[in-house]
Structure formats: C-alpha cells, structure tokens
C-alpha cells in the first residue's frame, strides 16, 4: 500500500513541477465557467417551471459538480499514455498496472482540490450556495461513483487499444459522455422529452449525477445506491477481463 501512496504523492508533486502558476489558467477557466453557470441556472429556474428541484438545490448541485469534477467522471492517463508509450514503464514496476493508474490519478487530484475546490468551498456561502449533504449516504455514493469511474476509464483504455491508440477520439467520446449522460452538467432528472426515466438506468448516470442528487436530497436512496452497486458489479469484472485480453494487443511507441 505504501508504494501506491508514494506513487500518488509523486503524481501530486508532478502537477506542480512547472510551478503553481501554470495550474492557474485551468483553475481560472473552471471558475469562469462555474460563475456564469450558476447565473444561468438562476435565470432558468426563475422562469418558474416546476422541475422537482429548488433553486438552492440546483446551485448546490452545480457548485459541487465543479468542485469534485475530477472525481465525478474519472479520467486516468491510460488512454494518453498508450499512444505516448509511457504505459510500458508501468509494466517494469513490481506493482499492479491498474493500481498504479489509480494511485497516479488520485494523487493528481490533490493540487486541484487544494488550489481550486477548497478555496471555492470556503467561498460558497458568499455566493449563496449551501454545501452540506442531505444524507451521509452521499459519501458512499461518491465512493461507488469513483470506483465505477475507474472501471469505465479502463474500458475506454481498452477501446483505445482496439482503435490503435486513437486517444483523441476516446477523449472526445468521454467528453460527450460527461456532458450529457453523466448528469454532472444537467441533472438527469431535468432532461426533457421523457429522457430522464430511461437515462437514469444507463451506467454513466451512476457516475457524477448519482452522488450529486444524493447530496441535494432529490434521489431515491435505495434505488440510486442499488443501481450504482449493480453497475460496479457488472463493469469491474468486465473491465478486468477485457483489460487482460487487450494487453496482448497493446502497441506503444514514442517516449
């Protein structure tokens, strides 16, 4: 376990190797997207449509989604490392490859949590955002979301192997998933044309949308946690099986 912790620590340090100043553009863009998004929801919700959520809940949902964005739709470096050849290095170490990817990813969250999420969490009351979970089950749901995120990411990496390292395409697909199907931008519950009823059962809805709806108290806890557990039970063995088979097809070059 200590080896994984050291990997995570190295990953966190690596993010700041060029100096904290080079993290600022990304952080600034996140803030500049979040603030108008909060106002967008204020404008939309003030139209008075009944959607089963209050404005306060919507703002908390959006705010928390931005604060925990890295965890809500997990993205490891696997797809990029496949095309750059870096992934081969992981096979030369006496650690599980997936374990290293997990540790490296979790470590990479630390600078953003410290430099972006924590300050914004402290500023939340000033922006009229309430950041207290409606249920302690939020933490369970978040953990299930992160676990499922790693399984889905492993499947995307396998897809990348199948598509001969087209990590650019994989990233585009992943972004599309995050935007529409995960519920991190628009709560699944708000989707029009009856899509909400169907979409809540697809696996991506068990990513960010699930813990966020538990956090604001609009979720049916038993249903949502059960769906998350079910998708974890289905997708983790599938991801491991496909990963093991895909390793034989792995082609890396570059450096």
């Amino acid at each position: 376990m200590k080896k994984y912790l050291v990997t995570a620590q190295l990953s966190a340090l690596e993010k700041t190797n060029g100096g904290i100043v080079y993290l600022l553009p990304n952080i600034l863009i996140k803030v500049c997207t979040l603030v108008p998004l909060l106002y967008l929801w204020r404008v939309v919700m003030s139209a008075g449509a009944h959607v089963g959520m209050t404005l306060e809940q919507m703002l908390s949902y959006t705010y928390l989604s931005a604060l925990l964005s890295n965890m809500l739709v997990v993205e490891t470096a696997a797809s990029g490392w496949l095309s750059e050849g870096v992934i081969l290095q992981l096979y030369g170490r006496p650690l599980s490859v997936i374990g290293q990817l997990v540790a490296q990813t979790v470590g990479g969250w630390a600078p953003y949590l410290l430099l972006f999420s924590l300050p914004l969490a402290l500023l939340a009351p000033l922006l009229g955002v309430h950041l207290v979970p409606a249920s302690p089950w939020f933490f369970v749901s978040l953990l299930l979301c992160i676990m499922l995120g790693f399984a889905i990411d492993a499947l995307f990496a396998c897809l990348s192997i199948r598509l001969r390292n087209m990590n650019w395409l994989i990233n585009r697909l992943r972004l599309a998933v995050a935007t529409v199907f995960s519920g991190t931008v628009i709560p699944i519950k708000l989707l029009p044309y009856g899509m909400a009823e169907v979409m809540k059962y697809q696996p991506f809805a068990s990513l960010g949308g699930a813990p966020l709806s538990v956090f604001i108290g609009t979720a049916d806890l038993t249903e949502i946690i059960s769906i998350q557990v079910l998708w974890n039970l289905i997708l983790w063995p599938t991801a491991l099986l496909i990963w093991n088979r895909s390793q034989e097809r792995m082609v890396s070059y570059g450096g």
Partner: peptide
C-alpha cells in the same frame, strides 16, 4: 469514420446540453 463520428457526437453533445435545458424550460432568459 469513427474519428469523424466521435467528433460530431462530441460537439453535438456539448451544444445539446444547453438546448436540452432550453427545451425543458421553454427557453433561457
């Protein structure tokens, strides 16, 4: 074709996010 399709899906997804909100609420602002 997969790459082209993926790019189109991604851009339509980004654009459709805001449209779905507008459709649900009958407009924005």
């Amino acid at each position: 074709l997969l790459a082209i399709g993926g790019d189109i899906v991604n851009n339509v997804a980004i654009a459709s996010g805001v449209f779905l909100i507008a459709a649900r609420f009958g407009g924005i602002g």
